[in-house]
């Protein structure tokens, strides 16, 4: 469970909420727990008791452990319903995005490794060639998942994943929805150079 406000410790709470507010550019302190976000969250049923308002509360209380590792952060589908309906314009999807990055920097194992792999692989593929090649991207993504499952000896999971993705692949191929060609952007170096520059600055 989350920590109680009675155990609030400003020493630990302030750095956490400050970091999240700065990086997400969202004013978490404006949340007055009306729970309009919770009512509209489409994955509310999948995230246990954690809805956007709960996540914001955890961060304000400095409950770092639970804030960095919960179902909402990893199952948020970025539909932006919470932020669109929030009377104080707090976009929680940008908070869950920020938390994902903080958790990665802290070398925490993501609760949903497939979600983390997906986004990492997507961006890597997009940057590598300047354009996303669906087949290349999906191959890397599946490879990463398989390796992770192999390490944990989850053979049944590997089999199920292979079967379901092969089935989907075949159905896509039959409808010519599988793209075998290759696409790239010649100027992709511009983005790579910019990215390198910013990395140097922050390190």
């Amino acid at each position: 469970m989350t920590e109680s406000a009675r155990e609030f410790d400003p020493e630990t709470a302030h750095p956490m909420v400050k970091e999240v507010m700065e990086r997400s550019q969202q004013n978490l302190l404006a949340c007055y727990q009306c729970r309009r976000c919770a009512a509209g969250c489409p994955v509310g049923e999948e995230t246990g008791y954690i809805t956007p308002d709960r996540l914001i509360r955890m961060i304000i209380l400095g409950d770092r452990e639970n804030a960095l590792n919960n179902q909402l952060v990893w199952r948020c589908v970025s539909c932006y319903t919470c932020g669109t309906r929030c009377p104080n314009d707090i976009q929680t999807a940008r908070i869950t995005d920020t938390i994902k990055k903080i958790a990665k920097e802290a070398h925490l194992d993501p609760l949903k490794p497939k979600v983390a792999h997906f986004h990492d692989t997507f961006v890597n593929s997009g940057i590598r060639w300047g354009r996303l090649n669906e087949m290349e991207f999906m191959s890397f993504f599946e490879l990463k998942n398989t390796l992770k499952d192999l390490k944990r000896m989850k053979f049944k999971a590997i089999y199920d994943e292979l079967m379901s993705k092969t089935k989907l692949g075949l159905r896509m191929a039959r409808r010519k929805r599988m793209h075998m060609g290759f696409q790239s952007a010649k100027g992709r170096g511009e983005i790579k150079r910019l990215y390198k520059k910013t990395k140097k600055k922050t390190v």
Partner: peptide
Amino acid sequence: EDWNCCGATSAGKVDDFLAVAMPAR
């Protein structure tokens, strides 16, 4: 001419700067 991937929603989950730089180009 020579457009690049916009980064979709993934870029914002991986790196804030890339999420801006990719569509910006």
